[in-house]
Design a binder for these strands. Structure first.
Lengths: 190, 190
DNA sequence: ACCCAAAGCTACAGTCAATAGCCATCAGCC
DNA sequence: GGCTGATGGCTATTGACTGTAGCTTTGGGT
């Protein structure tokens, strides 16, 4: 009984939502199939392997995060842009822990990997934020990577629920924005 | 044929080294047993489960990293201390990718989890570095967490081999130290 | 109406974690 | 020196999971 309407994109979307609910680590072909009301082997008609599915979830996450970042960055510069960037990443990781977890440690598969594409584009957004700080073009790559480290570390520790993020998490978050803002100002006027 | 000399610590140590060699994700009870010249079920006499083994590897990594950080921080303050801190983390993640990977996303198991203990102690080292910058005591927690995010993001992206770290990685690394140094100076004199 | 490709299924093989239950060895003690 | 119990190893087995082979059914296009 072929179901013509079911695309691989829908499967990835379903699997991603499931990962957000039950955790990325516990995502199996079995639970995905169950959610879609099918048997596990049928999934292989749409997806190469579990590894492939996981990679696609990571790609979806990176694309979604990138879009939200670009949306939030419109018309903003300087500290506003920085704060918006951090806020979006924080919200995405909180609302979609499974999707974000999929991106952690996920390797790129060659030159034209969509996941690499999405990650590169996100780095471009970071570079745009840095532009407003007057970071010299020779240093934008280094600065973007540094910012990426800060963002990724924050998101990764968030989804891991590390360091007993107590009620003060909002204050830590504000402190982090100040720190990055002042650091970028100081380094660009050096 | 009982082997009296084999302790669970040795098994964890062996498994950690194996993880550094073949990758944390591909670490199974089978390969650990093979390395130790035993059958997989025998490992369960020393270790509760694969999960337990992984948690112990994460703990070992956090303890080792913490010790190396404390060693490197002796007699240093300000930018020197910050640079030493980043250097140690970078070296540890590079030399022991499997061990560091074990710590990523590893949850704490209750109040008296040795892994939590080691992580808390590492945060203390970060606080010590911050002391040299004159960060107010009310903000050391926020600052230490922020620093932890930066360090963790850097290490996690390192072991994931993300963002095509090309030859310029050393320059990015130096840039990051400058950024953190100037950021801490600026925020503490605010 | 017919064909064929798409999309589902059952059955099965291989891998892995984990348990049950058995046996060999060593330490301490009479 | 020989018993005894704890320790640490083993084989056999179960159950979950990934992935493949091959069959069947449906629906769109001619």
């Amino acid at each position: 009984m072929p179901r013509t309407g079911l695309s691989s994109e829908q499967i990835v979307e379903t699997a991603a939502s499931l990962a957000d609910e039950i955790g990325f680590a516990t995502l199996t072909m079995g639970v995905v199939a169950e959610r879609l009301d099918m048997r596990p082997p049928s999934l292989y008609k749409h997806v190469l392997s579990l590894d492939d599915l996981q990679h696609r979830i990571a790609t979806l996450a990176m694309v979604e995060l990138g879009e939200q970042v670009r949306d939030a960055l419109q018309g903003k510069a300087g500290r506003d842009a920085l704060a918006a960037l951090l806020t979006v990443v924080r919200r995405y990781a909180t609302e979609h822990p499974g999707r974000y977890a999929a991106t952690i440690g996920e390797p790129f598969r060659g030159e034209d990997d969509p996941f690499l594409h999405a990650a590169t584009r996100l780095l471009g957004s970071l570079a745009a934020v840095l532009g407003g700080y007057g970071v010299s073009t020779a240093n934008t790559d280094h600065a973007a990577r540094t910012l990426r480290c800060l963002l990724h570390g924050f998101a990764a520790l968030l989804v891991a629920d590390a360091f007993q993020w107590d009620a003060d998490i909002d204050r830590t978050f504000e402190w982090m924005i100040d720190f990055a803002d002042l650091g970028l100002r100081a380094i660009s006027s050096k």
